Simulated assay, not measured.
Amino acid sequence: MMNFHIISAFPGVFENFLNESILKRAKDAGAFYYFLHDLREYANDKHKTVDDYAFGGGPGMILKPEPIFFAVEYIISHYKVNNPRIILTSATGRLLDQQYVNDVAANPDETLIIICGHYKGVDERVRKYLATEEISIGTYVLTGGELPALILVDSMVRLLPGVLGDLDSAMSDSYQSDVLDSAYFTRPQNFRGMAVPDVLLSGHHEKIKHWRQESSLQNTNRQKIK
C-alpha cells in the first residue's frame, strides 16, 4: 500500500477531493492511504504560530522551520517509516512530469511525506536539510502547496495496481510517450450537427488505429505550435 502523509497549515482542503470517485475506491480497496497532519499542531508556542517575517526584510510571510521538522520527525517515529520520500511543494522545485510520476508509482509500497508550502515561501533550512525532493507543478505561483499535493497523489494513485480497470488505458495517456493522446468521441453519434468521424463507426480496427495515430500527431503538433 502506498502511504501519503500530507503536512499542511490548511488540512481541511483535502478531505472532499480524496474521498470522491477513483481515489475513494482506491483507498477503500487498500491501494493507498493518506494521513493529514495539521502543521499548527506541531507549533511550539501557545498561539500555534507557523509563519514569521523574513530576515533581511521584504514582503510576505515565511513558514517557520520548527513545526515542519517536528511534524516530519513525528511521522517517521510514530509510523515507523523507513527512508520516506520527503517532498516539498515549491515554485522553485523540479517540474513535475509523467516520468517522475511513473518512477514513484512503480513502487506501490512507497511512503511519501508531502510538505505543503504556503505564504511567501518556506524557510530555506527545510529545503536544504529536510526535504529529499522539491516539486513544482508549473511555471506559475499558487497561494499554497495544497493543490500540488493533491495533484501528486492523484497522478500516482491512478497508476497503482488495481486502481484503474484497465492499466493500458493509463499507459496510453498523453505524456506516456512522445506524442499526446488522440481525440475521443462517445454517444450521441450526432450532436447538433456535429458528427462522429465515420471511420470510428466502421468497425475496421486497422483504419481506426491509423485514425487515432493521426489524431495523436495532430494534437501533439497543435501543442508545439502554441
Rank of each mutant, 00 (worst) to 15 (best):
Arg158Ala: 01
Tyr100Ala: 12
Tyr129Gly: 01
Gln213His: 14
Lys209Phe: 01
Asp109Lys: 14
Asp38Glu: 10
Ala91Ile: 14
Gly117Thr: 02
Gly93Gln: 07
Val153Trp: 03
Tyr79Met: 09
Ser216Asp: 11
Gly138Arg: 12
Pro11Ser: 06
Gly144Lys: 08
Leu130Val: 10
Tyr175His: 15
Lys224Arg: 14
Gly121His: 09
Gly60Ile: 02
Asp178Arg: 12
Ser215Leu: 11
Pro188Phe: 09
Gly57Phe: 06
Pro188Glu: 11
Lys64Gln: 12
Tyr42Lys: 05
Ile114Leu: 13
Ile6Lys: 03
Gly162Tyr: 01
Lys128Leu: 13
Asp109Trp: 03
Lys24Met: 09
Ala54Gly: 06
Val104His: 04
Thr143Cys: 12
Asp166Cys: 06
Val163Glu: 00
Asp103Tyr: 10
Gly165Met: 05
Ala131Gly: 07
Lys24Gln: 13
Ile62Thr: 02
Leu150Ile: 12
Gly121Val: 05
Val163Gly: 00
Leu142Met: 15
Asp45Ile: 09
Ala105Asn: 06
Asn16Ile: 05
Asn102Leu: 14
His37Asn: 11
Met171Gly: 00
Thr92Lys: 15
Phe185Val: 03
Met1Thr: 11
Leu23Arg: 04
Ile137Thr: 07
Gly30Val: 00
Leu112His: 05
Thr186Phe: 06
His205Met: 01
Ile87Arg: 02
Leu88Asn: 02
Arg85Asp: 14
Ser182Gln: 09
Arg212Lys: 15
Glu146Ser: 04
Ser8Thr: 12
Ala9Tyr: 03
His5Asn: 04
Val101Phe: 07
Asn219Ser: 13
Ala29Arg: 07
His210Gln: 14
Gln176Glu: 15
